[in-house]
């Protein structure tokens, strides 16, 4: 049913673009904030001013990637909930479309909007944020794709069970933001209390941050095979669980 997948994805992209608030919120605002911050902080980032928080001076690309992936998750959860509540999922399901196709189209749209947002940021931010010439962009893109897939599949699990569209976004926010807090982006995982460390290591964001950071700074995949494996396993677990508990109506 590849034809159906392509059709539906293309249609969902068009529908996404027709909603001005959605486009502004998920694409335009992040790029704008990035550029404004770049104008304000750019010179100090370039000179490596010591008062810069670590996540600005070192982890900016990772920070941005994780936030964009998180916002993709939130909007995915909201869309699935709205589609379910409106009977759209049920209507699509009563066609030859395979259930997986219907869901995959939503994921593809989110991956694409994430990619577009990041690409715009890179273009717009080049002037303000210096990127070393030896950053392995292809590797980083691959790592980002794996991370996003894993994080989005977590979103799918949340979307599978949220009761109503009204609560979808708040619930997803409550789950996703603490996970980012524990991910090691702001505070190194090693500095957390032991219990929090254990929890942190079981979350996809933590592995994603570790993988993205490592790849960005030129460490090889072999050093992060563990992270990649965790992300893959989580993707499989989340998708399997979702397919078991997913509610169409």
């Amino acid at each position: 049913m590849l034809r159906g997948l392509w059709r539906l994805t293309w249609l969902e992209i068009k529908i996404f673009v027709r909603e001005p608030l959605g486009v502004i919120g998920t694409v335009a605002v992040p790029v704008l904030v990035f550029v404004v911050l770049g104008r304000l902080l750019g010179p100090r980032v370039r000179t490596g001013a010591p008062d810069m928080p670590r996540f600005v001076s070192v982890d900016l690309p990772i920070f941005v990637s994780i936030l964009i992936a998180a916002s993709a998750v939130l909007s995915l959860v909201a869309i699935v909930a709205i589609y379910r509540e409106g009977g759209i999922l049920k209507r699509l399901r009563a066609t030859p479309l395979r259930p997986l196709t219907i869901l995959a189209a939503q994921v593809l749209v989110k991956l694409l909007s994430t990619a577009v947002t990041l690409a715009l940021m890179i273009l717009a931010g080049r002037r303000y944020y210096p990127v070393d010439a030896d950053v392995p962009i292809a590797s980083f893109t691959l790592a980002l794709l794996l991370s996003t897939l894993s994080i989005v599949s977590l979103g799918f699990l949340i979307a599978s069970v949220v009761p109503t569209a009204r609560f979808a976004q708040p619930i997803a926010t409550l789950i996703v933001y603490p996970m980012i807090g524990l991910s090691g982006l702001f505070v190194p995982v090693e500095a957390l209390p032991p219990t929090a460390q254990m929890i942190a290591r079981a979350l996809p964001f933590t592995s994603a941050v570790s993988l993205l950071r490592g790849i960005w700074h030129g460490e090889g995949w072999y050093r992060h095979a563990g992270d990649a494996a965790v992300l893959t396993v989580m993707f499989v677990i989340f998708m399997t669980l979702s397919s078991k508990v997913f509610r169409w109506e």
Partner: peptide
């Protein structure tokens, strides 16, 4: 289907 909807902006 009863009370079905489609995407608002399709």
């Amino acid at each position: 289907l009863q009370e079905a909807q489609l995407q608002k902006r399709i």
